[in-house]
């Protein structure tokens, strides 16, 4: 793969819902292993951007390339199989299953043996990978707990574990710190920083103490378009950005 290939490259991506233009001509290049924040007020189009990238709501115009491959027309599950993952603003978990079973399905979904009538043994590779992932997100003690019995913070943790399962190459985190306690946010920052270097991500996060500490570049969105881009320190110091999005008291 040549050095010029980007993990994610958006060219003129737009998305409309009837007369509403949720995304307008988005151009963005994210390198392999790069970590970026997408910031902006509610309704700026951040989650719609994620939906366009993952294929949940494909763009109405423009092209999306993922590690050089044009994935604009691919269904969501084909993008997942190529190592593109996401988390959701509100947890999208399987509440009738246990923590381990949720992670097991996340691993199994991207393997070839998705459809199987045979119970997994202890040496099942997907089961081992799920157990490893439980360690990573520090949930091993909750392996057999039903998701419906988990606290909100634990559900957010599991949501991240689901995104990390099965060899991801690029992850889209949609407000991972929402509803977390201060201690849980600190843990989240540590976990994001400790991700393997080859895994790049885009994070949408309203808590700038989290977002600006885990990325090397920021994109600010406003009314469905890119408003400004820069390093975290530039963004933090930018008076216009401060005034409009961050609040003048920030910093």
């Amino acid at each position: 793969m040549s050095a010029a290939v980007h993990a994610l490259e958006l060219q003129g991506v737009s998305r409309s819902f009837g007369a509403l233009k949720a995304l307008m001509d988005i151009n963005m290049k994210v390198g392999p292993g790069e970590r970026r924040a997408v910031l902006g007020a509610n309704g700026a189009g951040k989650t719609t951007l994620f939906n366009a990238i993952t294929g949940d709501f494909p763009p109405t115009a423009g092209r999306i390339r993922y590690f050089g491959e044009d994935i604009t027309g691919l269904p969501a599950h084909e993008r997942i199989r190529r190592g593109l993952r996401r988390t959701y603003q509100s947890s999208q978990l399987f509440h009738g299953l246990t923590v381990l079973e949720n992670l097991f399905l996340a691993v199994r979904g991207v393997s070839r043996a998705r459809f199987s009538f045979r119970r997994p043994g202890r040496n099942d590779p997907a089961m081992e990978a799920a157990e490893e992932m439980m360690d990573t997100v520090r949930m091993s003690h909750l392996a057999h707990t039903s998701v419906s019995e988990l606290a909100h913070g634990q559900q957010r943790q599991l949501e991240i574990g689901m995104a990390l399962a099965g060899a991801p190459r690029f992850i889209l985190f949609d407000e991972p710190a929402a509803g977390l306690s201060s201690a849980e946010r600190t843990e989240l920052v540590a976990m994001l920083r400790n991700l393997p270097e080859h895994i790049g991500y885009i994070i949408i996060e309203h808590d700038l103490d989290v977002a600006l500490r885990v990325v090397s570049y920021c994109t600010i969105m406003h009314n469905g378009a890119i408003f400004k881009e820069g390093r975290p320190d530039e963004i933090e110091q930018d008076p216009e950005v401060q005034r409009i999005y961050l609040g003048s008291g920030h910093g």
Binding site: A76, Y88, Q92, L93, F94, L97, L105, G109, V110
Partner: peptide
């Protein structure tokens, strides 16, 4: 037996959250 096999787990997961199952790469109709 099937309730704890990948097929059964996937079926229950489809019941709980079909959108997420689709996003995980499962063919929920199958």
């Amino acid at each position: 037996y099937l309730s704890r096999a990948p097929f059964g787990l996937a079926l229950q997961a489809v019941r709980d959250n079909p959108r997420r199952m689709r996003a995980l790469g499962f063919n929920i109709q199958a």
